[in-house]
């Protein structure tokens, strides 16, 4: 098993006087895992996901993506890493209203320098793989919430990232649409995609292979840390 993600004693402080959103987090995620991050509002889940996704930098500690330390990388190198290695799915989809689904998904490859024709071809494949082969030329407005999130997922996976990150992907969906999205993510994971997902949904988290609970900027439980396999940390279960 290769390790996709490693965090060592990571902290993140905001403002002055500094308030710590993360207070020393250790986490390791191996290839092929599907990890749910759970915790109350304001506990630091999004902060953690931003650091994992290299959208933000840790105040202290180490973040390693596919074995490489990213803390000291230049902005250009981090951008390159995101363009090729990390996929994001957001609660609000962030689709471009003026573009068809194919072009929205194709924009996932925009910053790889791939030609438009090739991007559209890959986008079509990705849309078929998320079950939207019949919605290629629709505009986001013409799609249901669940379909829109599946388009956003297709955009995230179109470049076949080593790591897929999702912040509350079902947060603005009804339970039925949410379920199709979860099924899709499970399917992708079954095909080998490593996924880290934030959720408020207890039932959803329960069904995932590994749950990391976070509270006040600290990991309080981890149902399957590969580093300490079998051991359970004391604290609140998710």
């Amino acid at each position: 098993m290769t390790t996709v993600l490693e965090l060592h004693d990571v902290t993140r402080s905001y403002g002055s006087p500094p308030t710590q959103a993360l207070r020393g987090v250790d986490l390791r995620v191996d290839e092929g895992e599907f990890v749910a991050i759970v915790g109350p509002s304001g506990s630091g889940k999004s902060t953690l996901l931003n650091l994992i996704g290299t959208l933000d930098r840790a105040t202290s500690g180490e973040v390693l993506i596919t074995g490489e330390r990213v803390d000291d990388l230049s902005d250009a190198r981090l951008s390159a890493l995101r363009a090729h290695t990390i996929g994001f799915v957001f609660q609000q989809f962030h689709l471009s209203e003026g573009q068809s689904t194919v072009d929205n998904v194709g924009s996932g490859l925009l910053y790889t320098g791939m030609s438009r024709g090739l991007r559209r071809e890959r986008a079509r494949e990705a849309l078929i793989s998320v079950g939207l082969g019949h919605r290629l030329d629709h505009k986001p407005k013409q799609l249901s919430g669940g379909e829109r999130q599946r388009v956003a997922i297709a955009r995230a996976i179109v470049r076949r990232p080593a790591l897929l990150l999702a912040d509350e992907p079902t947060g603005s969906l009804d339970s039925a649409s949410g379920e199709t999205v979860v099924q899709l993510l499970r399917e992708l994971n079954g095909n080998g995609t490593t996924i880290v997902l934030i959720t408020h949904d207890r039932d959803l988290a329960e069904r995932l292979p590994r749950r990391v609970a976070i509270r006040d900027g600290l990991i309080v439980s981890d149902s399957g840390d590969p580093a300490i396999a079998g051991q359970t940390k004391s604290g609140v279960a998710a």
Binding site: A76, S79, A80, Y111, R155
Partner: peptide
């Protein structure tokens, strides 16, 4: 766009 890999 930054999350998709755009540089500054």
């Amino acid at each position: 766009r930054r999350s998709l890999g755009a540089t500054r």
